[in-house]
Design a protein around this nucleic acid. Structure first.
Lengths: 181, 181
DNA sequence: GTCTATATAGCGATAGAC
DNA sequence: GTCTATCGCTATATAGAC
């Protein structure tokens, strides 16, 4: 437990990158091994099957969400503004983990779909006290989902039609005015 | 042109259903042929390649969006309310076409991703006059994207964590108040 | 712990009968 | 217009050397 082997993390990073940039179809064990600089046999020592590799990626997502919930609760600008602003792709570890999980889910992996719904619930729980009512909470969650959806379509590198900088600040103000308790 | 062969539509319906219910990975030509009640050879008479079959599905999406834009412009409740309300899965032909295209896009099909962005633009164009400014338009589009994203994760049949009935009416009111010109 | 070699299965696509 | 049979390729996974 204490410290995961380096090769393991390197493989997961490569798998994540291919999922995001090239899609679920391209994220084969072969391509992952090549990108990680190991052989297919070497990869299969760390992950006994593709399913095991996918589950490891989802476990990493879970850890990163826990860290984000802590940061969100402590954000100076407030949880809602933090949540919306960080919903646009910043290419940080959490964003990448979510995007990769979304690829798996849309490829037919039901565990990934469940995990994403679980993640969404944890965010909603933390934000609930900061919204006037359930409708206001719905609004915040849906705007965030929308931002992620556009990122997911854009493929991670190419920026999608999402508000940037000034437009994002204006959007946050609009949402906060609409949901203020 | 006048009337597409029955088998052609039956194949596209089957392909769409498998994409939505079982994911992009499962939507093979073999599985599609079986579900449509034809042989693989029979399928390949209508669609010379898998790419041709995917493009036919995207063309069908385009037609359905054109019909929806007409309906939206004429909706008694107003375009914005119509747009948000119809963003939740009703399992109608348009919803299914979008969900299927999203699956293709996330599987790595760049044509599908472009088509979805194009569809989004056409909606935004029609809604623009009904929003106070670009930020308000962003809000409407993102809430709609969020609703679709949740549907996409849920898989079409299982309802996701989206507002229903009363909650939806409340959400529409909240959004309309926030964006009123 | 990492490698090469190989087994097995499924996919997209072709050929040609009917 | 629809079928069966089959080819070529690639994917996951196994076996066993180093």
């Amino acid at each position: 437990m204490s410290r995961p082997p380096l090769a393991r993390e390197k493989v997961l990073d490569a798998f994540e990158r291919i999922l995001i940039d090239d899609g679920e179809r391209a994220a084969t064990m072969d391509a992952t091994a090549r990108a990680a600089g190991v052989s297919k046999g070497g990869l299969l020592y760390h992950f006994a099957s593709k399913e095991a590799m996918e589950n490891a990626l989802l476990a990493r997502l879970d850890e990163r969400v826990s860290e984000d919930l802590t940061a969100m609760a402590a954000a100076p600008e407030g949880p809602v503004a933090y949540f919306i602003r960080t919903s646009v792709m910043q290419n940080d570890p959490l964003d990448r983990a979510i995007l990769a999980a979304a690829r798996l889910a849309q490829g037919g992996n039901t565990v990934a779909a469940e995990e994403l719904r679980n993640v969404r619930d944890r965010w909603a729980q933390t934000l609930r006290p900061h919204a006037r009512d359930e409708t206001a909470l719905d609004l915040v969650m849906l705007v965030s989902d929308g931002l992620y959806f556009n990122n997911a379509l854009s493929g991670g590198s190419i920026p999608g039609p999402v508000p940037r900088d000034d437009a994002m600040t204006a959007l946050i103000t609009l949402v906060e005015d609409a949901i203020r308790p």
